[in-house]
């Protein structure tokens, strides 16, 4: 991929996605799955999106690939607005953004052979001559270290890790520049996860890919992402580069998350902030509390927190926090 004028491949500005779930006397009821999210992804980097279930991370992924139409806000891919439904998105853009889903058991059609699974994206997005299709498919399988005879197998007859490798090969088929990875390893065992993550990292270097990596596993994130964004109830709380994130977490929610991670070495134990004990649960996105959405669980709650929603503040270069605790420091 050639470098463009600016260094951002994807820019999301004030993205909102509401789902209507019913109505009452006061009007329609919405689930505010994504509520005003802005972030950007640079060429060749991995941006990690972390959050608990129900925080809206998958909704962002699906909106970026065009499975949902945003309620409002902009998604700019290489300076082109792609905030429309996939049907209206030009084929050349669909080709550029691919996705790998969480559960390969349900994202691959069990009645198709791997050959059929890989053929469709090649036929749709590339003008490979018919005679070379098979060659190209074998090449794709080689990229993910699967033998050529896997072309004639079907998904149920291969292991979970291998299925995910096929899903990755399928995403690579149209030669994309951005791949959205929606929890690609959370359904797999750690020994298999390690293999897949390493393969993904190798492929990124080899093919100059940019990843939007979504996961709830913070320790995995530390090892794959360049920058990390934490989400809570449809909003981003903190963005920082991976190392800073674990050494100097600022947002109370980030601290709570990191201190909840079970670790295996003494060294990691020292990194964990001890002061924040996890309490409460994520509220329903139908009734988002007023003010800062985290104030019900926050140990440092102030009166202002239940009234005013804090804004994103850059407390250090490339380190953005959305919390009243740090708002004051930055302004005065």
């Amino acid at each position: 991929m050639t470098q463009q004028g600016n260094s951002e491949i994807l820019k999301v500005v004030n993205l909102k996605k509401y789902f209507r779930i019913g109505k009452d006397k006061r009007g329609p009821i919405y689930v505010r799955a994504v509520d005003g999210v802005s972030f950007n992804v640079k060429y060749g980097e991995t941006l990690g999106l972390v959050g608990e279930s129900g925080s809206g991370k998958s909704t962002i992924a699906y909106t970026v690939v065009g499975m949902y139409r945003p309620t409002s806000g902009q998604i700019l891919f290489k300076n082109q607005n792609i905030g429309m439904e996939a049907v209206r998105r030009p084929l050349s853009l669909k080709k550029e953004i691919q996705i790998v889903f969480q559960d390969p058991g349900s994202s691959l059609n069990p009645r198709q052979t791997i050959e059929q699974i890989l053929r469709l994206p090649l036929k749709l997005h590339t003008n490979t001559p018919k005679k070379q299709l098979k060659e190209k498919m074998i090449e794709l399988l080689e990229k993910v270290e699967l033998p050529a005879d896997y072309l004639y197998k079907s998904p149920p007859s291969i292991g979970g890790g291998e299925k995910q490798m096929v899903a990755i090969a399928r995403a690579l088929a149209p030669n994309p520049s951005l791949i959205v990875l929606d929890e690609p390893t959370s359904a797999l065992d750690v020994s298999v996860q390690a293999k897949i993550i390493n393969k993904l990292m190798d492929l990124q270097k080899e093919l100059n890919l940019t990843y939007l990596f979504i996961t709830h596993d913070l320790s995995l994130m530390r090892n794959v992402a360049n920058r990390i964004a934490i989400m809570y109830l449809g909003k981003i709380c903190e963005v920082a580069d991976a190392a800073t994130f674990f050494e100097k977490p600022l947002h109370p929610y980030t601290q709570m998350l990191i201190s909840s991670v079970p670790v295996v070495t003494e060294e990691e134990e020292r990194l964990k902030p001890k002061k924040v004990v996890s309490i409460g649960e994520i509220p329903s996105p139908v009734n988002i509390p007023p003010g800062c959405s985290f104030h019900l669980r926050c140990p440092y709650k102030m009166p202002i927190c239940s009234e005013v929603d804090p804004e994103m503040k850059e407390v250090a270069p490339e380190h953005i926090v959305r919390c009243h605790l740090f708002g004051k420091q930055a302004s005065g």
Binding site: V190, S191, V192, Q193, A194, K195, I197, N198, D217, L218, S219, L220, R222, N223, A242, A243, F246, I258, V261, V263, V264, T265, E267, E268, L271, K272
Partner: peptide, 16 residues
């Protein structure tokens, strides 16, 4: 198994 576990102190993941 132990080497495959991602660490929050970073340093990459073993080959599995």
């Amino acid at each position: 198994l132990l080497a495959s576990v991602p660490k929050i102190s970073g340093g990459g993941i073993a080959r599995g």
